[in-house]
Amino acid sequence: MDIKPIKNKRTTEIILEQVKNLIIDGQLVPGDRFLTESELTERFQVSRTSVREALAALSLTGILEIRQGEGIFVKSASPNSVIEPLSFILLLEKDQLQNILEVRKALEVEAAGLAAERRDGEDLDNLKAIVEKMKTDLPEAKDSEQLDLDFHLALARASKNPLLNRLMNTVQETMGQTLQVTRALWLAATAGTTLRLFEEHRDIYYAIQSQDSEKARNLMYQHLRKVELELEKYREDSKEK
């Protein structure tokens, strides 16, 4: 595998570029096991933190899949996932996770408020069904990522704003991968997180049910802010190792 040591300040960006080229050149194909974090650190001759940031970005854009206890694998993806302009931006963006979380706050806090004001019976039935599935899914939370995404997209539909709904669905895949990365970090670092995540979604649903738009906005903001804080904590811990 042709990996060159990095002699450049934009370390993470160059790691991303080299891995992308390995896939384009056919040296890596879907299903291949990729190098470990330690092997990448040695091959690239960079810090472990830079490698972790690059792996998170590659996982976020759907190019690599990090399987806990198994390793890192090249992920099967549609042709558009490699050439999509948004994916390129995310792939090369230094703080892609943080930026996407900020965009999620901008979209979803308002979506929650509008959903509380405009939801109809069908919206409430959909949200309630998702929340009940989340409860049934405890404590293992095997389907938590998909249910989490379903809940947030259902909120967008309940906002009755076609543009907001379209924006949320346009970034659906990116959101899903963000949830996967941030949730993995959060669950690994914090005991009892699955129950708290369920309770947070349940409380947002209750606020929407009672048409309390301000409470719905506040609960959604706090929900997403906690994810940001856990990500910041993870980054700080990574720098110390």
Rank of each mutant, 00 (worst) to 15 (best):
K133W: 00
K135T: 01
K133C: 03
S47E: 09
G121L: 05
E122A: 13
D2W: 00
E17L: 11
F73N: 05
V46R: 12
E132H: 11
L90G: 11
I130W: 05
I15S: 04
T49Y: 05
L16Q: 06
I63P: 04
I66G: 00
N126Y: 12
K142D: 05
L114P: 00
A56V: 00
E110A: 10
K7D: 11
S78P: 08
L124H: 05
K128Q: 12
I23V: 15
N21P: 03
I15G: 02
R52F: 09
K20P: 01
I130M: 10
V51I: 13
S38N: 05
K75A: 14
V131E: 06
L86D: 10
I63S: 01
S38D: 15
Q45H: 08
P85D: 03
F73P: 08
A116E: 01
N21V: 08
N80P: 01
L91C: 05
I66F: 01
V103G: 09
R104A: 10
T12N: 01
S87C: 02
V29A: 13
E140T: 15
R52A: 12
D2C: 10
S50L: 04
A111G: 09
P5F: 00
I83A: 14
R119V: 11
A54T: 03
R52D: 12
T136W: 13
A106G: 10
E37Q: 14
D123H: 14
F34D: 06
I6P: 06
E42W: 01
N8M: 00
Q96E: 03
L138F: 04
Q146R: 15
I23T: 11
